[in-house]
Design a protein around this nucleic acid. Sequence first.
DNA 1: TTCAACATGTAATAAGTTACATGATTCT
DNA 2: AGAATCATGTAACTTATTACATGTTGAA
Lengths: 193, 193
Amino acid sequence: MALRHAVLAVLLGGEFSGYQLAKVFDTGVANFWYASPQQLYTELTKLERAGLVDGQLVIQLDRPNKRVYSVTEAGVAELVRFAEAEAKPAVIRDDLLVKVHAVDRTDAAAVVARLEERAVQAAAKAELFDGTLRALRGDLDEAAFLATGDRIGPYLTCLRGWRFEQENLDWCRRSAALIRARWGAEMRDAAAE
Amino acid sequence: MALRHAVLAVLLGGEFSGYQLAKVFDTGVANFWYASPQQLYTELTKLERAGLVDGQLVIQLDRPNKRVYSVTEAGVAELVRFAEAEAKPAVIRDDLLVKVHAVDRTDAAAVVARLEERAVQAAAKAELFDGTLRALRGDLDEAAFLATGDRIGPYLTCLRGWRFEQENLDWCRRSAALIRARWGAEMRDAAAE
DNA sequence: TTCAACATGTAATAAGTTACATGATTCT
DNA sequence: AGAATCATGTAACTTATTACATGTTGAA
């Protein structure tokens, strides 16, 4: 009963097939929800049976046919109910932070490597979100778009995702540098062995 | 096989009972992992059977007895293996951002209310983490602590959590103000009905 | 004596992940 | 002919959530 609303919220932005949705959810939809393709296919089936979305077969000549979904009136009503309910605290589960938390007793060189990998990913995501924000704004500047644009919801969530990834990048770099500074000698010793 | 490492990482900081751990995980352990008490009790049982933690009964006169756990050598070895494995992308699932994403088609007043609730929670958490950071630093300033303190891992993760909550607070406030500005008239109309 | 905090679990259900399966179409 | 992308699912398994269940101790 949770993925359901995330899917409905994304489908407000237009018609999507399961495959297209899977790509959107794979990047984490501006960092607020992640779902696997398998989850999406089953969820779309459930949503359609519940009458919250409407699926239409699209015949394609240049590639395999697909089924695209759009939100029904009942689906919008469900989103309204959801908006009024209390928001649960966000669920965050991050492997990398567990590794950093334990760094003093494990393997500093390995943790630094993981931080650097994540930094690269964070930079890529920040740039991706930046592009999305520009596309949503169009010709308008941010203030004008937020005052007059037709859908500010996706813009606000994307802004949050963008800032999150920028902070992530900054934190990964600083943490890696600090760990290097403390375990530099040992890391060189280990490399020399 | 995921909560396991988060529990081990926290237990590196000392002995904890299931009940104490539950309180730590309830705040999200500096925003990198959330787990319910039920999960923790079952996980601790599994960890002890696997020999990764060691449980000791503590007789208490002033309150019910408890069982406190500490990480064994095998537990530390498991954390080292974990540190070297690739970090999975973080899982984030946030109800509130779904509500905001859909705000243009749902109930702006309700979403603003949820944003304000979250802002209060974020401010409280930021302050909590700030206190934790100060306690970890002791008399030292941040640079000195990071250079010479005996465990910087928990400090770095707490720093991340602190920044995250500050950003959260800022985003909630700005988003609420923007939504109010756009739907102010309608929100007043609805309130007047 | 009732409430809050301390303390620990089990069972049923829901959700999410991983592995398995298939097939079309385009490009090299 | 083989790889990449598009496209959609099912089944088995692992995790997480929710509901249930119990009991101690201290303070109001």
